[in-house]
């Protein structure tokens, strides 16, 4: 059973090479590149993500999503004249054999796309590499550290680059997975928020996800057919089994019905947090130690660092949502995102 080659449903000229998961449409390589890029462009323009002259950092890990994002952002910026200044921003978590290799990929991307690259390490920001953290606390919960540190590191890197906006390669599958995780945790407040295409904190830089509606399958196919250079080794510390189960479940759903991914995102969007719920949350202040915005007296990163330095192996922030306690202490330092007091 070898089916005869199918002709592209869009141009009726060339041989179809991909079946689109979203639509089932069978299209040729050139039409695929065009519709994939155009859909990202539509996502960007419909959400009015950028303004002319914006300085935009692409959070670049060397992996498939951010590599394709850098490629597509550059192409769209040129094709549609967005007028953006694009930068690559990478975080070096200090994971030997993983991040050091993927950073080599990012450095090649810097050449290929001729974009300025800024690399910031956990070591220089926090005085701890992930290798050191793991040797202290073990492999459990280290994703918590990494997640908190990375978010703050990206903001600091963005401040150093003086960018207005960080774009990340989160794709539709990632967002659907996060929706599932938030449902499983009963975290309704974050359920709606995690589907937002663009978020902006009190004094932080905008963050957005131009691939919000892009399927992982198409991102990987795009990278394959464009022969893009990306790094694909799993983080050696990734022990987040719970997320792994969510991902497997999602992939099973997708193979039964490809629209499941978009359907789940739409479900998350339907939970968009009402203003009254948000008012119950604490007002933002700044961290007394490092000046980063925080809903408590100490920001999440500094709290984790204190725990590490006290050698508290079990130091965990259960409520990363920041609804615990009543810290009334005013910030002692002015807001300054780029500085971190090492003391």
């Amino acid at each position: 059973m070898t089916p005869t080659p199918k002709t592209c449903a869009l141009c009726s000229k060339f041989r179809a090479i991909i079946k689109r998961p979203k639509t089932g449409q069978q299209i040729c390589k050139e039409c695929f590149f065009f519709v994939f890029e155009t859909e990202v462009h539509n996502t960007i323009t419909e959400a009015k993500l950028f303004s002319r002259g914006d300085r935009v950092a692409i959070g670049a890990s060397g992996g498939k999503d951010s590599t394709v994002l850098a490629h597509v952002m550059k192409a769209l910026n040129e094709r549609y004249g967005y007028g953006l200044d694009l930068y690559l921003l990478s975080i070096d978590e200090g994971i030997t054999g993983y991040r050091d290799d993927s950073l080599e990929t990012v450095k090649r991307n810097q050449q290929q796309y001729s974009m300025p690259l800024k690399i910031l390490s956990y070591d220089e920001l926090y005085g701890w590499t992930m290798d050191a953290i793991v040797s202290q606390i073990g492999k459990k919960n280290n994703c918590t550290f990494c997640g908190v540190f990375r978010r703050q590191a990206l903001d600091r890197g963005a401040a150093m680059l003086k960018v207005d906006h960080i774009v990340t390669g989160h794709n539709a599958d990632d967002i659907a997975e996060t929706v599932l995780m938030n449902i499983m945790r009963g975290d309704i407040a974050r359920l709606g928020r995690c589907t937002l295409i663009c978020t902006e904190g009190e004094d932080t830089i905008k963050r957005s996800k131009p691939f919000k509606y892009a399927y992982e399958k198409e991102i990987v196919m795009y990278a394959y057919f464009k022969r893009l250079d990306y790094f694909s080794t799993e983080c050696i510390y990734s022990p987040d089994a719970y997320r792994g189960h969510a991902r497997t479940f999602l992939k099973d759903l997708e193979s039964a019905r490809p629209s499941a991914i978009i359907d789940i995102i739409h479900s998350g969007e339907a939970f968009e947090v009402k203003e009254e719920v948000r008012k119950g949350q604490k007002a933002q202040q700044t961290c007394r130690k490092c000046g980063y915005m925080s809903s408590n007296d100490l920001c999440k990163a500094c709290t984790l660092l204190e725990g590490l330095e006290k050698g508290l192996a079990e130091a965990r922030i259960i409520d990363v949502g920041g609804r615990t306690g009543s810290h009334e202490m005013p910030p002692e330092e002015p807001r300054e995102v780029t500085k971190l007091d090492p003391s």
Partner: peptide, 15 residues
């Protein structure tokens, strides 16, 4: 699920 297969550079779902 999550592994893509290509046959002579064509999505195996078409083949």
């Amino acid at each position: 699920p999550g592994i893509l297969v290509l046959v002579n550079d064509s999505d195996w779902e078409l083949e």
